[in-house]
Design a protein around this nucleic acid. Structure first.
Length: 509
DNA sequence: TTCCGACAGTGGGGTCGCAAT
DNA sequence: ATTGCGACCCCACTATCGGAA
């Protein structure tokens, strides 16, 4: 199959806003693809590469050569080139990758270039990724979507599942099973503003509340003496977390898959800031020294397999019972089962007093919905707010093209009378607000603006919600807001009424 | 007919390893 | 030694479609 076929399909998918139409376009193409190119086609059309990462980003994709006129590149040819790009390493590799990228772009037409640019840039922008592709694969293969979804849960990689469905049908899909040593996409949680809302959403019956730790999600697999540890995106971090490996090897069960969180704790048991845990987990050099200075603790909260038995399709209460049988108390995430909102709120308050992030509320009947934001898990975190001043705004991309989108936020410095930038946000803005702020900020434009950033006179006050303040090596005040989002503009407030850097600093430890 | 769950899109700060400067 | 890039850790929120109620 030719790349141009995919580029045309992608364009058709982007042109139709209806999901069912997108599915039709994708399924039509998938039904024509040869078995040996099925995985590539599913990957490309859902925004993935069979190679996963190839070391090419936005910078390498600048200044590309002119396209050719006649489309002739096959999927196999493109795939070979991408593999060669990924294989580059060592001195001279950046230039070599760039050369190969240019070779690739010289070999394709303008429409194919546009498709590849979005694919390699990681922003397909056709309104279809995994969710729509699951339906398209099911339609093209003539199998129920539920079978595709189930196989994806166990395999974690849609191109492989899609290729299996297209070539082997429902039988091939049913042959996927949980395999110890191969990661499953972890189940994710929805969020609620407070414990009461979370309980209401879960139907007001008895629920389990668990500590939400601000660390790194891990999935630990053990088969006999072999242990592997994976992150949320299924990357293997076994070598970076020896403490966890040892803890799993010490368990009395030797065929097990566990879900949990690793976190760096201080000597007094309180959590280190997220930055410390993240740094420790991503450091690959000299782990032996790091585990002395910054030891990691692990807390498990779910079990996907214990003693050779798969638990994914059992309710939370049964999975947790199996977890408790296999894992000693000190490795378990603290948990309370209750139907009483008062008790739940007290538990939440206690978690916060201990310095942790919040709670996850779980319905006892919930099955493990791998890779999905299941309705049975609801996280609750406290929220801070500040009144800040807009210092500048950046032009948006994609559906925000032509709108000023990303806001630069500043707190008042009472000493100098100036404003200290604390970060940016683009979240929480409705289309109406985007239109309004674009007009308003252009009228307030002031000072040196460039292609992307419009500086404005510091006159607009905006109420911003955020999760916390962290140390920043980037911003002048040495601190930045975590997960800032707009709540509302405050036309009733003047810049002099905005919160000060001192009040922000109080939230930093 | 209305409601709501799931999805895609639009980006945020911080840190690492590696290659280039 | 420092800088730039790619990748990945954490992530919130809105608009939209289409099936559920």
């Amino acid at each position: 199959m030719l790349l141009i076929d995919l580029a045309r399909t992608s364009a058709a998918v982007a042109a139709d806003s209806a999901r069912l139409a997108k599915i039709r376009h994708l399924a039509e193409l998938l039904s024509r693809v040869a078995p040996d190119e099925a995985e590539i086609a599913v990957a490309y059309l859902s925004g993935e590469l069979p190679q996963r990462q190839i070391g090419v980003g936005w910078r390498t994709l600048q200044d590309l050569p002119e396209p050719r006129q006649i489309a002739s590149a096959t999927l196999t040819h493109v795939d070979d080139l991408l593999s060669r790009i990924k294989a580059q390493a060592g001195p001279g590799s950046q230039a070599a990758r760039k050369d190969l990228v240019e070779e690739l772009f010289r070999a394709v037409t303008r429409q194919e270039q546009s498709f590849l640019l979005r694919l390699l840039g990681g922003e397909l922008r056709q309104g279809a990724l995994n969710g729509v592709m699951i339906e398209a694969v099911a339609k093209a293969a003539g199998t129920p979507a539920a079978e595709v979804r189930r196989a994806l849960m166990l395999r974690g990689w849609l191109p492989a599942v899609g290729a299996a469905a297209l070539t082997g049908g429902v039988e091939a899909l049913r042959s996927f099973r949980l395999e110890v040593g191969r990661p499953v996409s972890p189940m994710l949680a929805q969020s609620a503003p407070n414990v009461k809302a979370a309980l209401d959403r879960l139907g007001g019956e008895a629920v389990a509340l668990e500590w939400k730790l601000d660390g790194v999600r891990v999935q630990a697999h053990r088969s006999g003496p072999e242990v592997k540890v994976f992150t949320r995106t299924l990357d293997d971090i076994t070598a970076q977390v020896p403490e966890l490996v040892e803890a799993v090897l010490a368990l009395p069960v030797d065929d097990i898959v566990l879900d949990g969180e690793v976190i760096a704790l201080r000597a007094d048991g309180r959590p280190e800031p997220f930055q410390v845990t993240a740094s420790r987990v991503s450091s690959k050099i000299d782990t032996a020294t790091l585990r002395e200075t910054t030891p990691l603790s692990v807390f498990f909260f779910d079990a996907l397999r214990v003693g050779g038995q798969d638990l994914l399709e059992l309710p939370d209460s049964e999975r947790h019972a199996a977890l408790v049988r296999a894992v000693p108390e000190e490795l378990l995430t603290p948990r309370l089962v209750t139907a009483d909102p008062e008790e739940g709120m007290a538990f939440f308050a206690d978690v916060l007093r201990r310095g942790h992030e919040g709670v996850v509320v779980k319905s006892p009947g919930t099955l493990y919905a791998a890779g999905r934001r299941g309705a049975g898990w609801v996280k609750v975190k406290p929220r801070h707010t500040l009144d800040l001043v807009v210092l500048a705004a950046e032009w948006g991309h994609g559906r925000r093209e032509g709108k000023l989108s990303n806001l630069h936020l500043g707190a008042r410095d009472p000493e100098s009378g100036d404003f200290v930038m604390l970060g940016k946000t683009f979240k929480g803005l409705t289309d109406e607000l985007l239109t309004w702020q674009t007009e308003r900020f252009l009228a307030l434009a002031d000072g040196p603006s460039d292609e992307w950033v419009v500086r404005v006179r510091p006159e607009i006050v905006v109420e911003v919600a955020f999760d916390g303040v962290q140390r920043s090596p980037r911003y002048p005040g040495g601190m930045a807001l975590r997960f800032a989002r707009v709540l509302r503009y405050r036309p009733d407030k003047r810049p002099e009424d905005a919160d000060t850097v001192d009040s922000v600093r109080e939230l930093l430890f």
